[in-house]
C-alpha cells in the first residue's frame, strides 16, 4: 500500500496503521505523568513539611543539629534536581548507575524514579510556599487547643495548603505529560518515541508530529479541566443547610443559605 499524496490522506493512513502504537505511547505518557506527579507530590509534601518544622531556642541541641543536617540534604536535593535538565538526569542516573555502581535498574523503574524525584524537587518548594501562605492564626488556633506540630499540619495546615497549591500541582502534571518525552533518551516507548518511529518509517515527519501535537494537546487540556473540576469539589458547596433541633421544623424543609455564585476558580 502506497502513501496517499495529500496531507489529510497521509494522516488517516498513519492513524489506521499506527494509531494503536501511538495510543499505547500516549498511554505510557499518561501513566508515567500521573504516577510520577503523585509520588512527586508526596515527596514534595514530606520535604516541605520537614523544611517548615519550627525550631525554638529552647529545643535541645540534638534536635537542632539533626534538623540542620536533614535540611541541608534536602536543600542539596532540591537545588540539584531543580537546577539540571531532566534529560541529563535521566541519562546520568540510568546509565550512570549501571556503569559506576553496577545497578541495572529497569528502564521503566528509572522512568518513574526520575520523573518522581524531579517533580518532588519542584513540589517541595511549592508545598513550602503553600504552608507559608496559610495565616499563622490557623497554627495558633490549633496550638491553643493543644494540638502538636504533626496534628496541626495534618488536620489544619496541609488541607488548606493542598487546596492553595492545586493550580501548581496541575501545572506539574501538565509539564510532566509533555516532559516525559525526554525519556525517549533512555528508550522508553512513550508518545514521542512512538511518533519518531512512525515518522521515520515513511518520512512523514510533519504528519506524524501533527498527530502527536493533537494528542498531547488533548491530554493536557483534559487534565487541566479535570483539575479545575477537582478544585471546585474541594471548595465544597457555597450553601449550607441550617440544622435544627426542633423536629417539627423538619416537615417544613430545611432552610438553605445561598452564598456567592459558583465562580470557577476566579477570585471571590
Amino acid at each position: 500500500m502506497s502513501l496517499p499524496d495529500n496531507f489529510f490522506g497521509r494522516i488517516i493512513f498513519l492513524l489506521e496503521r499506527y494509531g494503536g502504537s501511538l495510543l499505547r505511547g500516549a498511554g505510557s505518557t499518561i501513566l508515567i505523568a500521573i504516577v510520577s506527579t503523585a509520588i512527586g507530590c508526596l515527596i514534595g509534601f514530606i520535604v516541605g513539611v520537614i523544611q517548615t518544622i519550627p525550631v525554638r531556642q529552647s529545643d535541645n541541641i540534638f534536635k537542632k543539629i539533626i534538623l540542620k543536617i536533614i535540611n541541608f540534604i534536602l536543600y542539596i536535593y532540591v537545588e540539584v534536581f531543580r537546577g539540571t535538565p531532566m534529560m541529563v538526569q535521566a541519562m546520568f542516573i540510568y546509565y550512570g548507575s549501571a556503569t559506576v555502581f553496577n545497578i541495572h535498574m529497569g528502564k521503566w523503574f528509572a522512568a518513574f524514579f526520575i520523573v518522581s524525584i524531579n517533580t518532588g524537587a519542584y513540589m517541595a518548594e511549592t508545598v513550602r510556599g503553600g504552608i507559608l501562605s496559610i495565616d499563622p492564626g490557623q497554627t495558633e488556633g490549633a496550638m491553643a487547643i493543644g494540638m502538636n506540630h504533626f496534628q496541626t499540619m495534618t488536620s489544619v495546615i496541609l488541607p488548606q495548603a493542598l487546596r492553595n497549591i492545586m493550580p501548581q500541582i496541575g501545572n506539574n502534571l501538565i509539564i510532566n505529560i509533555k516532559d516525559t518525552c525526554v525519556l525517549s533518551a533512555i528508550s522508553i516507548v512513550e508518545l514521542f518515541f512512538a511518533t519518531k518511529s512512525v515518522a521515520g518509517t515513511y518520512y512523514t515527519y510533519f504528519e506524524a508530529n501533527s498527530i502527536a501535537m493533537a494528542m498531547y494537546l488533548i491530554m493536557t487540556v483534559f487534565f487541566s479541566r479535570l483539575l479545575r473540576w477537582m478544585e471546585g469539589k474541594m471548595d465544597g458547596s457555597d450553601s449550607f443547610d441550617m440544622a435544627t433541633t426542633d423536629t417539627l421544623a423538619h416537615t417544613s424543609g430545611m432552610l438553605s443559605y445561598r452564598g456567592k455564585k459558583k465562580n470557577n476558580g476566579r477570585l471571590r
Binding site: G137, E140, G141, M143, A144, I145, G146, N148, V156, F240
Partner: peptide, 28 residues
Amino acid sequence: PAYRAKVGMVFQSFNLFSNMSVLENCVV
C-alpha cells in the same frame, strides 16, 4: 499540649479552621 488543652484561648481574629465546618472546628 495537655496544658494548652486545659487553658483555652479565644483570639481577636477568631482563628477558626477555615477548612472545617463549624461542627468540625469544635470536634477536632
